[in-house]
């Protein structure tokens, strides 16, 4: 008979935008419940409200963050299962000291590739992740990479232009 360690983790560590956080699991105000999603934890516990929750059911892409190099939906991810992960959110893209925008962010501003802007952080994270993997995608790849992102204002056309433009510039923001 195998000895079962039926114990819940007492704490997790997350590296978010380069900062290491230790979070205790529990039901006290400063702790996170095992049922907390990553989105909830980023927004409520760590105050990183740049990650947006749209549908909260994994169907709109607005909560997308980059976890261990891949875009994932933070609303459908339990924080307790992210122990040891490296997470990048929209707050982690610009240079933290100079404030210089990431080339994708810069391109989005230049193209006004947003209207209400609520879906934008998720779209930017997915776009950034795409360019990290494939620095010169064609528009079809961009659309496919963003196919899980809902935008009701229809910023799509300007988004595709912005991502293509950022790719053309080889990931360098204009000075």
């Amino acid at each position: 008979m195998i000895q079962t360690k039926n114990r819940q983790k007492k704490a997790i560590t997350l590296t978010v935008n380069g900062n290491l956080h230790k979070l205790n699991i529990g039901d006290q105000p400063h702790e996170i419940s095992p049922s907390y999603t990553l989105a909830q934890t980023l927004r409520e516990t760590l105050g990183l409200t740049g990650t947006k929750v749209g549908c909260d059911q994994g169907a709109c892409g607005s909560c997308t963050v980059i976890m261990d190099g891949k875009p994932v939906l933070s609303c459908m991810t339990l924080a307790i299962e992210c122990h040891g992960s490296k997470i990048t959110t929209i707050e982690g893209l610009a240079d933290s000291i100079t404030g210089k925008l990431h080339p994708v962010q810069d391109s989005f501003v230049k193209h006004s590739a947003f209207q209400c802007g609520f879906c934008t952080p998720g779209i930017i994270m997915a776009s950034k992740s795409l360019l990290d993997r494939d620095p010169s995608p064609d528009p079809h790849h961009v659309k496919e990479a963003l196919s899980g992102h809902y935008c009701r204002c229809i910023s799509h056309y300007q988004v595709v232009e912005a991502v293509m433009d950022a790719a053309d510039k080889g990931g360098q923001a204009d000075e």
């Binding site: 740049g50 707050e91 006004s112 947003f114 802007g117 934008t120 952080p121």
Partner: peptide, 21 residues
């Protein structure tokens, strides 16, 4: 002329504050 939205940088950096923020 196409000028950057004044709230553009806030939107792309996640600083723009919506009601749930």
């Amino acid at each position: 002329k196409g000028t950057p939205r004044k709230d553009g940088v806030d939107i792309v950096t996640g600083k723009a504050r919506y009601i749930d923020d």
